[in-house]
């Protein structure tokens, strides 16, 4: 092999002597490194290399085992979750949730229509009921059983407490009425009292 001259050898200011170089190279050619050293070093290097690959094998084995354990845990966890009933419930719940708004909206609309029709019918009925059939003047008196209405015909119509409450609740009875007040009583076709209002037209 030719002698390698490195770049920074140019820095050498001491000139090479060709005759010395030749003598040195000739001397070097007669000197060889012991073959036993080469065998020993390479055997050592190969044993190290084998050990390295063995370690690599161990490392690979360890990684494989870890991966297998991870997959096993994943599988066990998945199976455990699969046998829990919540999954079915959740799925049904989602389906219900998805269909519920439309269904509810339909039901609510239907309910609203029914209520509206019912209210309208009730309103119409109440309008008919409120149609006064006849009126009668009377004087508000207080009796032992509550209030009473004494007409010019000396008839006394007793008002039960429930009736008074109902009339007040439906604003068909003036709140400021008191004993001795002259009132006008409106009756419907069935003779039921509709309203009691104060009046000054009582002429018996």
């Amino acid at each position: 092999m030719p002698k390698t001259i490195y770049a920074n050898s140019l820095e050498i200011t001491v000139k090479n002597d060709p005759s010395l170089d030749a003598l040195y190279n000739k001397r070097k050619q007669s000197v060889k490194a012991p073959a036993s050293t080469r065998s020993f070093i390479l055997a050592k290097a190969k044993s190290t290399q084998v050990r390295a690959s063995f370690n690599l094998w161990n490392w690979t084995l360890g990684v494989s085992l870890c991966t297998a354990l991870l997959v096993l845990f994943q599988y066990v966890g998945l199976s455990h979750r699969q046998i829990q009933p919540q999954y079915n419930v959740i799925q049904v719940h989602r389906l219900y949730e998805e269909s519920q708004p439309l269904e509810l909206a339909r039901q609510a609309a239907q309910q609203t229509r029914i209520q509206h029709a019912d209210n309208y019918a009730r309103y119409m009925q109440s309008q008919q009921v409120l149609a006064t059939h006849h009126k009668l003047n009377a004087e508000l008196v207080e009796t032992a059983n509550g209030w009473g209405l004494q007409t010019c015909d000396r008839e006394l119509v007793l008002l039960t407490t429930q009736l008074v409450d109902q009339l007040r609740n439906h604003h068909r009875l003036e709140q400021q009425l008191k004993k001795g007040d002259q009132v006008e009583i409106a009756f419907d076709a069935q003779g039921r009292i509709l309203t009691i209002k104060p009046t000054s037209k009582l002429n018996c």
Binding site: R27, K28, V31, K32, T37, I41, A45, K46, Q49
Partner: peptide, 19 residues
């Protein structure tokens, strides 16, 4: 860590070093 590479290095430099 390939032993073959070390062998090539050895063959290139061993005689110089030993000398």
């Amino acid at each position: 860590g390939d032993a073959a590479l070390l062998a090539r290095l050895y063959d290139n430099c061993a005689n110089d070093l030993y000398h």
